[in-house]
Amino acid sequence: MPPSGGFEAIRYKRSLPIRGPGGAAIFGGITAICAYGFYLVGKGNLERRELKRESAWSRIHLVPLILAEQDRDAYRRNTASLAREKEIMKDVPDWEVGKKVYNTSRYTQPNIVVL
């Protein structure tokens, strides 16, 4: 005979704790993180462009200064080189000191350096 009040209900349901947020939350969260990341990338790209511009202009402002210094040095070396050539070639008749190998009046950099 069954006990009075009937049998106890059979516990067949699994009683597992809820583990973490649901799928929609994870998906939404990752989307949000990625969106913020891409926002930063975009902002960073614009900023990097400006940083490049800044360092390019800092160099542009220095170009005349550096070029002037280099020019003085190049001129000094060139004068010395011509004087040396004149001294070495003084016994050769019809020798033109500092004559170009190119047929042009445009300035050409010397391509031989005497050490």
């Binding site: 005349p64 200064l65 002037a68 003085r72 001129y75 300035y107």
Partner: peptide
């Protein structure tokens, strides 16, 4: 030519 702009170069420096 380096010799061409020596005067201006000195001003720059």
């Amino acid at each position: 030519d380096p010799a061409h702009c020596l005067k201006e170069g000195r001003k720059v420096t």
